[in-house]
Every structure is written in C-alpha cells, then in structure tokens.
C-alpha cells in the first residue's frame, strides 16, 4: 500500500510528460491515476460552495448548502477537508473535518452545535452516505487506485469528448462489483461513471454535467472543474444534484484550519 501511494506521488510531477505521449495508449491504471489527480487533487488547496439537492423518485427535495475547504498534504496523497453547513437551518454551524487517506478509512470529526460537542466518527467510507446523498464518502474524496483492477475497455466519444472507457473491478468485496468510467482524454475528468451491483445490474450512475475552467489564485495555473454533477441511484430513482460555485484554487489555506479546534470556531474568513 505504502509503495503504491509513494509511486503515485512520484508519478505526479511527470504527469505532463505522460500526457505528451498519450497517443501511445497509456495503461488503464495510469489513466485512473491521472483522472483521480484531475478530479480530486487540483491545486494545492481549494475552496468552494456546494449545494446538494437530494431528490426522491417522486420529486421531493432536501437541500444541503455547505462550504468545502480542501488542502492537499504536501508530499503525500493525503488530504484534509473542512465542511461547514449553512443549510438546512437546524444544522447551521454543524461542521465536519475529514482527514483522508487513500489506503484506509478516513478520520472524521463532527461538531454538533446543539450540544456543543465534537465527536470522532469511525465509519466505512465505501458505504456511508455523504450527508444523506447518493454519494459515498469514497465518491467525494476518491478511492485508493490499487484497490481495483483497472482495464481499458475501449475508447469512444461521449457527447463532444473523446473518452477512455475504463472498467474497475474491486479486489475485495465492496458496495459495487464493477465500475465503468468514461474519462475525458483531454481533461482526464470522469464524465460518466456506472456502478454495477451484485446482480451485475446498473445501480448508480454518475455524470459530470458541466465543466468549467477555473483559474488558480495568482493566475499561473487553471483547473478543469466539474461544477455540476449528478449521482443517480438507478434502482430506487433517488438522485443527488450537486452544484459547485465560487470555486477558488491555490488560496493558501493554512493546515491549522483543518483541526478539531476550528470545528467549534470555524475560520470565518473562508466560510462566508
């Protein structure tokens, strides 16, 4: 595990080079690694406002509005997330802190303002729903690349984009048995993902519905960002629409923000 993480980190600086000889059909695992990099690791840090609409099959809605702060741990594939809730009203001021490790379950803390209490939560990322949505924690922060066997099935067009179609089969039993991902050859963002269940039927469907190019602070780099995403539970008809606004990269978030302390005293500067 350690080795794979390390190799992933070593790979990161050479990613542009790989991009250069992309014609030579990169291996499936490389594509997945680049896709993860593009989807989860853009910039050194990131701040965004996330609106999640949880919609039932017959159209009933619940809305969650939160600010998400993310910082990549320099030198490793670890990340830290700080989530601060604005809506629904009765959970305002609730906050989550997630320390993400690709190769094991995240560390999570939660602040419950009504009882002014911080609790660490131990849970399985692959099966716990992210704030009641159709996304799991794993979907939000990424899955360990070597945990699956990746195969490049074919290359095909999806809408306007040329895509790799990658099949990922988990090595150990998890909530799905197979994932098909359509990865944009240019941006390496996953445009569509199909999750199959134990009966080998399509169970969940992810789509990136809108991609925007967001310039990083300082204007040196820019990042392709999926600002509208949907995850649909095909079996139950439930779906989650995500809209991401006010995205900013490389804003210089301090590691101290991602601590238990800020759960109770959130960094006002960033969460407004």
């Amino acid at each position: 595990m350690r080795y794979t993480t390390l190799s992933f980190m070593l790979l990161m600086p050479v990613l542009p080079c790989i991009h250069a000889f992309a014609q030579n059909k990169p291996a499936a695992t490389e594509i997945v690694q680049k896709s993860q990099e593009a989807f989860y690791y853009s910039g050194n840090d990131m701040k965004s406002n996330v609106t999640m609409e949880l919609i039932t099959a017959d159209g009933k809605k619940r809305t969650r509005v939160l600010t998400m702060l993310r910082r990549n741990d320099p030198g490793t594939a670890n990340q830290k997330y700080f989530l601060y809730f604005h809506e629904p009203g009765d959970v305002r001021r609730m906050a989550f802190l997630v320390w993400k490790y690709p190769e094991k379950d995240d560390d999570r803390w939660i602040f419950i303002p009504a009882v002014n209490m911080v609790r660490r939560v131990a849970a399985k990322d692959s099966r716990s729903s992210f704030v009641g949505s159709d996304f799991t924690y794993e979907d939000i922060s990424g899955r360990d690349v070597p945990a699956d066997t990746h195969t490049l099935l074919r290359e095909e067009r999806l809408g306007d984009a040329d895509c790799y179609v990658i099949q990922s089969v988990p090595k150990a039993a998890t909530e799905y048995t197979k994932k098909l991902a359509w990865i944009d050859k240019k941006t390496f963002l996953p445009l569509k993902e199909e999750y199959y269940d134990a009966q080998n039927q399509l169970a969940r469907l992810f789509t990136a519905d809108k991609i925007e190019n967001v310039a990083g602070q300082g204007g040196k780099k820019s990042y392709q960002t999926a600002t509208k995403r949907t995850m649909k539970n095909v079996k139950s008809g439930h779906r989650t629409d995500v809209t991401i606004t006010r995205v900013a990269y490389d804003i210089g978030l301090d590691d101290g923000i991602f601590s238990e302390r800020s759960l109770q005293n959130p960094p006002q500067q960033w969460i407004k």
Binding site: D90, V91, M94, P113
Partner: peptide, 20 residues
C-alpha cells in the same frame, strides 16, 4: 432530547453516517 435543534442535528448526523 429537549430541543428540536438537537433532534434535527442528531438525525442529520445519523443520515450522514449510515445508509440513508
């Protein structure tokens, strides 16, 4: 618990950690 806020936050917590 005694307040609706507490109930709301507990249920939110439950909804974010288990199966919805």
């Amino acid at each position: 618990p005694d307040s609706a806020e507490e109930v709301g936050q507990y249920l939110f917590l439950f909804g974010t950690s288990a199966r919805p």
